[in-house]
């Protein structure tokens, strides 16, 4: 090795301490566990360490032959689709709030509408157990008042309405976030574009549909993809609403994929089955994240 090469190597070596801790953490806590998930999903194993046997794709066949798992996928998909309504709500709020310019009124509404999103998640769930209650709940009181007849829908206890109730909670909690992201994106649009359109005689509706919405494509894509990813791994609120049970109370209508995985990991352990479920969750999230990367150019790996 000649001297200049040695100097170069020494120069390179200075950089490894900056990344080494994170790299070790990545290997130990991300990549090894991920490969283990793949492995367990191919093994017949109830609790790891007490005997395991390779069984090929048996766990996957069991999953797709099991109505409970298929139902949990269907529940997750329905809940996720319903939750996406926060995007148009957030957009409309953002357009209205943005119309005030950067004034005190704007920041007042921005804080007000964002507040539900900052409240500790578990508090929101406790709150909505009262709001969505069939007898004396706030939502039914409100509906009774405007419909002039007594409404006693069990928003989280009736199988027919539970998904709607869970979605109302989600909308209440997440619309502020969608508003904030939409607002930031709106404010990045140069005002000259609107001025030019005004000169051409465009009205406000045309300005929104012809200028604003096309320019917000990236923002919508981002909210759509992150919304889908969050929806796919929904767990906490539905678990607590069911009284700390992953069964998806009432009668399994709120059991998501992740609650299924939790049930077969920690309540009635069958690690083989829950790992196969995890792989399916992983595949779904992976597809959507990849779509996000491709569509918005987020995470572009460019050399500098």
């Amino acid at each position: 090795m000649n001297a200049s090469k040695f100097v170069k190597l020494k120069k390179e070596l200075r950089w490894y301490p900056f990344v080494i801790v994170s790299v070790i953490a990545l290997i130990l806590f991300v990549y090894i566990p991920m490969f283990r998930t793949v492995q367990y999903s191919l093994y017949d194993v109830s609790i790891v360490g007490y005997g395991e046997k390779f069984c090929g794709l048996k766990n996957y066949r069991t999953l797709f032959g099991q109505s409970q798992f298929l139902k949990s996928i269907l529940n997750t998909v329905i809940l996720t689709l319903l939750s996406l309504i926060t995007i148009p709500i957030g957009f409309l709020l953002a357009v209205a709030i943005n119309s005030f310019g950067r004034t005190k009124i704007q920041s007042f509404f921005r804080i007000g509408y964002y507040l539900p999103n900052i409240i500790t998640g578990v508090s929101v769930i406790l709150m909505f157990q009262a709001v969505l209650q069939g007898h004396g709940g706030l939502l039914n009181t409100f509906l009774s008042a405007i419909l002039h007849r007594e409404i006693t829908i069990g928003w989280i206890s009736d199988v027919k309405y539970a998904k709607l109730g869970a979605t109302i909670l989600w909308i209440w909690q997440s619309s502020g976030y969608a508003m904030l992201i939409n607002l930031a994106s709106l404010q990045a649009i140069p005002t000259e574009l609107y001025e030019a359109a005004s000169v051409d005689g465009a009205n406000s509706f045309h300005k929104i549909t012809r200028i604003t919405m096309p320019l917000m494509k990236d923002c919508f894509t981002f909210l759509f993809v992150t919304g889908v990813i969050n929806g796919l791994s929904r767990f906490t609120d539905l678990y607590i609403l069911g009284g700390n049970s992953s069964a998806g109370i009432p009668s399994g209508s709120l059991q998501t994929i992740l609650m299924y995985i939790y049930q077969y990991s920690f309540e009635t352990p069958n690690f083989g089955l829950s790992s196969a479920g995890s792989m399916i969750l992983f595949a779904l999230v992976f597809v959507f994240t990849l779509a996000n990367v491709k569509l918005t150019g987020f995470m572009d790996v460019e050399n500098n």
């Binding site: 790299v23 991300v30 566990p33 991920m34 283990r36 998930t37 367990y40 796919l232 992976f286």
Partner: peptide, 29 residues
Amino acid sequence: FHGKKIIYILMLAVMMVPFESRMVPLYIE
């Protein structure tokens, strides 16, 4: 430094692996 790009990609790829899908083996670890 050597391997910079690989390490960077390895790190970014984590964002595509939901925590929940590696939770059980992590628990066992």
